[in-house]
């Protein structure tokens, strides 16, 4: 069962979970779930563009996702519409334009099913290199912006007064999220990537006494979900994305079944 393609998917998934853990914690802390969905939805537009100009899919998705992040950054400052309305606009706008563009090329070699739900058969050597290379860079960036981003999460005012430049940290985090989501498309798919960001963080919250513990714990739970989900996918021939998310969900429910720990969590 441990074929080449499976090992590639497993390694890619583990590399991915390494970053989705800490990044997902910030999604939870900063209530950015819809922001994540918006970036994921824009991925279809990215795929259409990648096909049109013959780019690697992950790169195409990353560029559109990053554009969406920049658009959001700009619009939030310039427009009076509420944030979730702006996100809805970009999210569904991007999705719709992407689908329309793709429909112009009926005999194009794009497997929509795989894009939406992930496909472990699709992970190539190049993808693996992109995911691990990108993952290491992403972790480095996250380490660099950790303090300002965390301070801005608690209070942007305190971060500014302390001279931490939270705006820059937030922009870097947005771009980083775009990269993470682009890298995750092959494994989890557009529809479920946000679940991989959120569920592991939610599962470890009550066991964590510090933000750093929560981030590390979420990475570990994410890796377990990816490994378990991929085994299930290979064994039962189920799509990889949903299998991973179901595994994460099971892990989450297991943490809820245990007895309530004293405040402050296990240490």
């Amino acid at each position: 069962m441990l074929d080449d393609f499976f090992m590639r998917a497993l390694l890619a998934g583990i590399g991915l979970a390494m970053v989705t853990g800490p990044a997902g914690c910030f999604i939870v802390w900063r209530r950015l779930a819809y922001f994540g969905e918006t970036i994921a939805h824009s991925a279809l537009l990215g795929v259409a563009i990648a096909v049109l100009v013959d780019l690697h899919l992950v790169i195409g998705i990353f560029f559109t996702a990053a554009l969406v992040v920049l658009a959001m950054y700009y619009l939030e400052r310039r427009d009076t519409l509420p944030t979730d309305t702006l996100l809805g606009l970009l999210s569904h706008g991007g999705l719709a334009v992407g689908l329309v563009l793709l429909s112009f090329f009926p005999n194009m070699r794009v497997d929509l099913q795989a894009l939406l739900f992930g496909d472990i058969l699709a992970v190539s050597h190049v993808d693996l290199a992109v995911i691990w290379g990108g993952g290491v860079i992403a972790l480095g960036l996250l380490w660099w912006i950790w303090r300002p981003l965390l301070a801005a999460t608690v209070s942007p005012d305190l971060a500014v007064v302390a001279g931490l430049k939270p705006e820059r940290a937030q922009l870097v985090f947005g771009i980083l999220l775009a990269a993470v989501i682009a890298a995750a498309i092959k494994i989890v798919g557009v529809l479920l990537i946000v679940a991989l960001l959120i569920i592991p963080s939610a599962a470890v919250r009550r066991f964590a006494a510090s933000p750093e513990q929560m981030a590390a714990g979420a990475a570990v739970v994410g890796m377990m979900a990816v490994a378990g989900g991929l085994f299930a996918s290979a064994t039962f021939d189920t799509p990889s994305g949903p299998s991973i998310v179901v595994t994460a969900l099971v892990l989450f429910i297991l943490t809820r079944l245990g007895r309530t720990l004293p405040a402050g969590g296990a240490r």
Partner: peptide
């Protein structure tokens, strides 16, 4: 404070440095 963010007294105090 967002209750999903685990912060102790000593972690909060060193938040900005």
């Amino acid at each position: 404070l967002n209750p999903t963010l685990p912060l102790t007294v000593r972690r909060l105090i060193t938040l900005t440095g």
